[in-house]
Simulated scan of single mutants.
Amino acid sequence: MTITHLVTHSGGFHADELLSSVILTRLFPKAELKRTRDHKWLAPADDKIIYDVGGDYNADAQVFDHHQRPSPLREDGQPFSSFGLIWAHYGHQYLTSLDVPADNIEAIHVAFDRKFVLPIDLLDNGAMEPSVAGPLSDLTLPAFFESLKPVFDDISPTAYDDAFFATLPIARSFVEAQIGNITAKARAKNIVMEAIAKAGASPILELPMGMPYGAALDEVGADHMLFVVNPRGEDWTLNGIKLSKDTFDQRADLPAAWAGLTDAALEEACGVKGAKFCHNALFIAVADSREAIMKMADLAVREAR
């Protein structure tokens, strides 16, 4: 049976049904998105998907609500919102529609659920307080969507629907960007793994371009690596490797004598022709050629040891 209608509630909107709509409108682009609380529309049917309303969670009947008691829970006991339910049932299909490589779909489905879907679920169910974000609490994605609702004195009878449909493409851009970034990290991981194998016991990891590399280093336990080099435009960069994503501390800093120097001053300090720049915080240096940056990398390794 063809899906002809996607049905969610009318009135005010939240991140969960908005993001659910992102997934469903891509998978069923010809279906009409209906915002209503009319009981006639909330009756299950083969040609409808009903979500964030309906008082039931029944995947076979294509009803995905989470407000009833008992409410649906994940295997670990954490609550679903409608977004989590829709992602659990339609996420793989959605990733396929975005041309995510088949070999990566399961891993990306899990990663997106953990990083993006679960926080929405927890906030929507009151299982996590917005205040955990501290001063940034008003800049979270759910708060951002809330800010796009009509103002209190907008008395237009279509105000909420108009705002919902205006916000939908914005929400879509966030979802697709996040999926794109996770997918890119999966591609990068394969490249980095090959580079780690090629480097062997060397403390210098050479990559063909700038890319995320921390996950691959952690997975293979390449703790001996201290610096990363890669081309950047016409130049080459030498970067320190952070101890973790939660800190700016590095496995090794660049030589202190290079801090804040540029061009001739840096060439004199390190003795390498073509050295162009070293950040004052000693986490990145730049040279005009691979030969020059590799010489700087060797010097950095010697000082670090």
Rank of each mutant, 00 (worst) to 15 (best):
S147A: 09
P119M: 14
F248C: 08
L24A: 08
K34D: 09
K149L: 12
V100R: 04
N181T: 09
H279N: 02
T96E: 14
D16Y: 15
A215D: 09
A264T: 15
A107M: 13
S81D: 10
P255K: 00
R251F: 00
I3G: 08
K273V: 15
M296Q: 06
V220D: 11
D253T: 07
H279F: 05
L42Y: 05
K189N: 11
T36Y: 03
L33Q: 01
R305T: 13
E267Y: 04
T4P: 03
L73E: 13
E206M: 10
T25E: 09
M128K: 13
H67M: 06
A265M: 14
M211H: 05
A163H: 02
L217N: 07
G260F: 03
A188R: 04
T36A: 00
S202Q: 07
V228M: 00
A257C: 03
H9V: 10
D103Y: 09
L261E: 05
A31C: 09
S202Y: 01
R187M: 05
G54K: 08
A257W: 00
P130I: 12
L226R: 02
V100H: 06
S173E: 15
L141Q: 08
F164V: 01
A171Q: 06
V7Q: 06
E176N: 04
V63S: 03
V272S: 11
D253F: 01
V192Y: 00
P79E: 14
E17G: 06
T4C: 00
E206C: 08
A127I: 11
V151K: 11
P70V: 14
T140V: 03
G200L: 10
G180R: 04
T4S: 01
A31N: 07
N280C: 14
L254I: 10
S20Y: 13
H224R: 01
F248K: 11
K40Q: 15
A201W: 10
D249R: 15
P70I: 15
E234P: 12
P255G: 04
H109E: 03
A127T: 13
D161F: 05
D263K: 08
V228P: 04
R187S: 12
L254K: 04
T140G: 03
R251S: 09
A256E: 11
A264I: 14
I120R: 06
D246K: 15
I50C: 13
N58P: 11
L226M: 06
A304F: 01
E176A: 08
R232F: 06
L205M: 12
K149A: 15
N190V: 10
Q68T: 10
Q62R: 03
P72A: 04
P44G: 05
Y160E: 07
D52P: 02
A102E: 13
D124I: 07
Y160Q: 10
R305S: 14
H109T: 14
L168E: 07
L42Q: 03
I105P: 08
V151D: 13
D121E: 14
P29Y: 02
L73Y: 13
G274Q: 02
M209E: 13
I204N: 07
A61R: 03
L27E: 06
L19P: 00
M193S: 08
L282T: 09
F64E: 00
D121L: 15
I179K: 05
F145Q: 10
G91P: 08
A215H: 00
F174G: 00
K276S: 01
V272F: 09
F164I: 00
M296A: 08
S173C: 13
L205G: 10
A216D: 03
A88F: 08
